[in-house]
Write a protein that binds this DNA or RNA. Structure first.
Lengths: 133, 133
DNA sequence: CGGTATCCCGGCCGATACTG
DNA sequence: CAGTATCGGCCGGGATACCG
């Protein structure tokens, strides 16, 4: 690298996702993974039960939702509250840290949703010029 | 859903990532995918050449970087500028749209990096109580 | 340098069945 | 309802070889 650092807040932290071995890369993958992002986004609306969450995150299987929730709970982003009733009732909710992460994620999600027309138009142009080949 | 909508800017757009078939989900996966996010983050620092990018995004293979760049270019987030010199020189840079996406992504990335100590502490607690089982 | 083509393995993930 | 267990397909993605 030369001296250019256009990045507005280039931090000098011990963690750096760009490094292969940095644990932050793993957490980022939990957060931005196929189901992690949608799960955090759904829980931002409020506490939810397992099957409620399953319906909200269209297409997720029981197994993947379970795995995803475990990973997020382990990272301290989701809190699991089980009531020993019968039938059992378990509620999932974001922790304070989870809410901060989810807010940033939703900002990204909403932005992308809002610009999908541009994206689809770009795809058409790309496919027209390159696909003709 | 009931009436609770805690989400601050619940939009009424034609695109909704939570729906399985929505194209925005695909774009979001390009953006937040394993290599997509890091590639956009790296390019936020400025225009870069292929191998420069490869070195910056530690661990990415030629094949995956190539695939990732194609997907991002198709979605209109990255612009590819090839100069027909010899040896060839190709520069990649973010489009205006790409910069906006990358800025939001970096906000998330930096936040996660900054809170990794909390995350790692949470993991230790989780593994202590649950792993003992 | 800046890629593409091919091979192939591991693990992501869905489907199904079962438990408390 | 809220999961776990197990199986198997498929494809993400690394390694290698090759091209302009």
């Amino acid at each position: 690298m030369t001296t250019t650092l256009a990045c507005p807040e280039e931090q000098d932290l011990p963690y750096n996702v760009f490094a292969k071995a940095c644990p932050s890369r793993g957490t980022l993958e939990h957060v931005t993974g196929r189901w992690g992002g949608l799960t955090l986004g759904a829980l931002y609306e409020g506490s939810m039960r397992f099957n409620e969450l399953r319906r909200r995150v269209d297409g997720v299987s029981e197994k993947m939702l379970s795995q995803t929730l475990h990973a997020l709970e382990r990272d301290g982003l989701v809190h699991r509250e089980a009531q020993p009733t019968n039938p059992p009732r378990v509620d999932y909710e974001l922790t304070a840290l989870g809410r901060e992460v989810a807010a940033r994620l939703l900002d990204l999600i909403h932005f992308v949703e809002g610009r999908m027309d541009d994206v689809l138009a770009s795809r058409d142009r790309y496919d027209d010029t390159r696909g003709a080949r």
